[in-house]
Structures are given as structure tokens and as C-alpha cells.
Amino acid sequence: MNNSEIISNVFRFIILVLLQVLILNNINFLGYINPYLYILFIIVFPLNGNKSLLIILSFLLGLSIDLFGNSGGIHAAACLVIAYLRPLFLKFSFGVSYEYNMVKVNKAPLTERITYITLMVLLHHLILFSLEIFSFSHILLLLKSTLFSSIFSIVLVFCTLLLFSRKS
């Protein structure tokens, strides 16, 4: 990563955390649906970036969300899993040679982009809500929360990507 990438990633980290804890955590649409936009950081982290660095950063990202939300370590755990499995999802959605083709999340074909983002968001939310609810007797609540929050998050992630994509 060069200097400008480091700076833009640091800013993205801070802004996404503040946006999440000050605004998005208070939406509570229909009582329980909240979008979790902050995983955008993991989604758009440079695809050829250092994998260990991404794992550590994701942990810190989740931990700071947990710190504000009094939720123990559920966000940290969920972020870690998607950060660790990200290369797998990238391979699955963009093809084996994504690292050499210099794929950018913003410029990839729409279907590949949808697959990648949906996989990341769904897995993150599933782990998040299973750890939060932490009991199999509430499995319906778990699936319901995962589904609706995922839809909300996916839409929001797409809008944010469209909004900040550079036309060049």
C-alpha cells in the first residue's frame, strides 16, 4: 500500500465507526432492523493488501463497535471470520486470478459484485446474530434478524459504493 491508500483507509475506518455508532445503530427500523455499514471497510480493503494486516484491522474495527454497543465481542468475532474468509469469497466471485487481474470492487461486473457483497454481508450478519442471541430456542428470531438486516445492509453498501465510485 502506498501513502495515500493508508491515509484513505485510516479515514474510512474512523468515519465508518462513528457513522455506525452515532447514527446507524439508532435506526431500529420496524423495531429491530439495523444496517451494519461498517463492514464496507473490510469489503473494499485493497484486494492485494496484506492479509494479516486485514485480520488485525477487522478485529479492531469490530472491537470498537462492540465498545460502543456494550455487546462483548460479537462484532469483533463476526468481522474476523469474514476478513479471514475474504480471499475465498474473492476467488469464488471474481475468479481464481483476481489478485493478478487488479480487480477493483467498483469496476467489476455487476453480478460478480453482487455475489461478493451478498456473501460477505450474509455471513457477517449470521455470525453476529447467532452470537448476540446465543440460544437455539430463538432460531426463528435469529434467521429473521439476519435476513432483514442483511437486505438493509446490502442495499446501503451498494448505495455507498455507487456514491463514492470515481468515474475515471
Binding site: L63, G72, L80, L131
Partner: peptide, 9 residues
């Protein structure tokens, strides 16, 4: 790290 966050949870 996962173990750590799981303990916290």
C-alpha cells in the same frame, strides 16, 4: 483473536 472475542462475548 477469534477465541479472545468469543470469550468476551
Amino acid at each position: 483473536l477469534f477465541l479472545f472475542s468469543f470469550v468476551l462475548t
